[in-house]
């Protein structure tokens, strides 16, 4: 995992993010900063608030209070909840990516793999078929999908291939920040390993900042530099990934770490 420490400014600055669903707490008072090239894992069990947090950070949900400041490509700091919908959607097509656990949510299942990858390019105005196609081919190669599958629909792809296609579709515009929601969830172990290795390589190579929600501590260990442990909507422990995993302080984190099955 390479990390470019030369960037002195963070990319994301989260301040006191809180989300209530009515009177029920989603997540409370979450604050952190994320730098370019840095991968942050959010771990916790179902219902701990990690998905609420991810959706709030990606402006999919409007938080009850708090701010998420993002450093735009022009260097301006903007609270993502103050962006117009047009700006937000533009950000999502260009500077951000979102890898869903269910690839069908992140792909167009009815169009070819090539078009799935090319869509973002066309969305930002690329009108050259040859260029779009060669870029799509390049990206399929980078996510290890054979070139002769470019005109096949993802319906005919295995779970692992769909997930890799989703990653290519997200990364083709060179985003600076990628959100991942259980990117390896529901995949066979051998398929998971391949995907993780691929993600690890791409994240390092492209210097992406990423926020990965996972309940799998092995995924967090392999992909992330830092992690936050969530329980009942609160961040109970945060820090360097290997320190949190090897020297957990909180009772819940110790329970989580001790619950990993050893092979």
């Amino acid at each position: 995992m390479s990390q470019d420490f030369s960037h002195q400014d963070p990319l994301l600055r989260v301040e006191g993010l809180t989300k209530y669903y009515g009177s029920r707490l989603g997540c409370a008072d979450v604050s952190f900063e994320l730098w370019p090239g840095e991968v942050l894992a959010i771990v916790g069990e179902s219902g701990s608030g990690k998905t609420t947090l991810l959706n709030s950070l990606s402006a999919t949900l409007e938080p009850t209070s708090g701010k998420t400041m993002y450093r735009m490509r022009d260097g301006q700091w903007r609270n993502i909840y103050d962006l117009s919908e047009a700006e937000r959607r533009f950000l999502f097509r260009t500077d951000w990516g979102f890898v869903h656990q269910d690839a069908a949510m992140g792909l167009r299942m009815g169009v070819s793999a090539g078009a799935n990858v090319g869509e973002r390019l066309m969305a930002v105005g690329d009108r050259n078929y040859g260029h779009i196609r060669s870029t799509a081919l390049d990206w399929l190669g980078r996510v290890e999908i054979a070139a002769d599958r470019i005109d096949d629909q993802p319906r005919s792809f295995s779970g692992g291939m769909r997930q890799r296609l989703q990653i290519a579709r997200n990364l083709v515009t060179g985003p600076r920040l990628v959100f991942m929601d259980e990117p390896t969830g529901g995949l066979d172990v051998s398929v998971q390993a391949r995907l993780l290795d691929l993600l690890r390589g791409l994240v390092g190579e492209l210097g992406l900042a990423a926020i990965v929600v996972t309940h799998d501590l092995a995924v967090a260990r392999l992909l992330s530099h830092r992690m936050m442990v969530m329980k009942d909507g609160h961040v109970i422990e945060a820090g360097l990934t290997d320190r949190v995993l090897d020297d957990p302080r909180e009772p819940y984190t110790q329970l989580l770490v001790s619950s990993i099955l050893q092979v």
Binding site: R89, R93, R108, G114, A115, R120, A123, Y129
Partner: peptide, 10 residues
């Protein structure tokens, strides 16, 4: 946002 129209032509 008309990128999708070109997806069809693609």
């Amino acid at each position: 946002e008309y990128g999708l129209m070109h997806v069809k032509l693609y």
